[in-house]
Simulated scan of single mutants.
Amino acid sequence: MSLFSDNIRALRVKSKISQEKLAEHLQITRGRYVKYEDGTSEAPYEILKKIAYHFHISIDLLLSVDIRKIEIQDLINLENNRIILPIQVEPNGDNSIEIVTQKVKAGYLTGYSDPEYIESLQQISLPFLGTGKHRGFPVEGDSMPPHEEGSIIVGRYVENIGQVQDGKTYILITKNHGMVYKRLNKNKKNTLVLESDNRFYPNYEVKFSEILEIWEFQCNIGRTDTKQPLTEIESLKEILLELKREVSEIKENTIN
């Protein structure tokens, strides 16, 4: 058996998926898949791509690293674990910002690694963002004020989960929770804690192995100038300032 055969068998077993079910996901027959797993036949490029996308592991790792010796949840930390990120480049060489509108959001989980899908997205350019790969995502709900539903969050692609900084906000693309925008903390092994700035929403955890992409917040594109409600600290400051003004007025009146 080849290293590739050992790897796909190990991944399938660790993922607790049958040969028949995996073959169904790959859109091939079970008999054809079995030949790849027992090493009697080599998988063509198209099948290699499908297997890599299914397990979220680069083709390079599938062919050159003994995955049996590595925990699946740790694979995202390996520098060589790269799935190609499709991007659009303008004629002058600058990266375009693909905008995932609300209309096409539902297809992002399956199309994020598909060059044709990415090419179909609307594009804009914001020169002040600097280097890095950027993408825009729609805001839903009220869990992350002051960003309102309907606005666009522009994020910079994070290549390694080790670059995530506690307390900062990120767009996460995950297997089980879809697309979310939260404040992250790495206070547990192999797990991220996701926090909403709106305290009405409880915190929850996402394992590294569930994460497909991470984008660090860079800017917000919105259409509203609604005045944001005061936070508790700001409200307290307002009260203290009002008291200070009243005391000053009383002193002036007393002197006069």
Rank of each mutant, 00 (worst) to 15 (best):
I76F: 11
T29E: 15
S58P: 08
E234T: 01
K188I: 01
N203F: 04
N77A: 09
D225T: 06
N95P: 06
E246H: 07
S5W: 04
I99G: 10
P138E: 07
V89N: 14
N190C: 04
R245D: 13
F128R: 12
R135V: 05
K133Q: 02
Q27T: 05
R199F: 14
Y108V: 02
E79Y: 03
D114G: 14
D66Q: 06
N160E: 15
G111S: 10
D166Q: 10
K227R: 08
M144P: 05
R156Q: 06
K69V: 00
P127L: 02
D60P: 01
M179G: 00
K244Y: 14
S196Y: 05
D60G: 07
V89E: 13
L48Q: 10
V13S: 06
Q19N: 08
Y33E: 12
N7L: 03
Y108Q: 01
S151Q: 12
G162W: 09
K237P: 00
E42G: 09
Y33R: 09
D197P: 02
V104A: 15
L184Y: 02
R245N: 13
S15C: 07
I51S: 08
Y157T: 00
S196Q: 10
K105C: 03
D66H: 02
Y204P: 08
I99W: 13
L26M: 15
S125I: 01
Q73W: 09
E216F: 05
K69H: 04
K227L: 08
F128G: 03
K105I: 00
F55C: 14
N256L: 06
I59S: 15
G155I: 00
V139A: 06
N203A: 04
I76Y: 12
I161Y: 14
P115F: 07
S41D: 01
K69M: 05
V65L: 12
K189R: 09
G167Y: 15
L26G: 12
N80I: 03
M144V: 01
Q122P: 03
E232S: 02
Y33K: 09
V164C: 09
L61D: 03
Q19G: 08
T231W: 11
D6H: 15
I233R: 09
E37N: 07
P127M: 01
G107H: 07
E216S: 05
T110I: 01
E246A: 02
R223S: 14
L75I: 01
I8R: 12
L11A: 10
F200A: 08
S113Q: 06
S209E: 09
V164D: 11
Y53D: 06
D166M: 05
G111W: 03
Y112A: 10
V65E: 10
I250M: 10
D60M: 02
I87C: 12
T224G: 04
V154F: 11
I233T: 11
L172S: 13
E37Y: 03
K188R: 15
K49A: 12
N198E: 02
K50L: 08
V180S: 04
L62N: 14
Q102Y: 06
G130Y: 11
E119K: 12
Q102A: 11
N185K: 09
P86N: 11
E210N: 02
N253I: 03
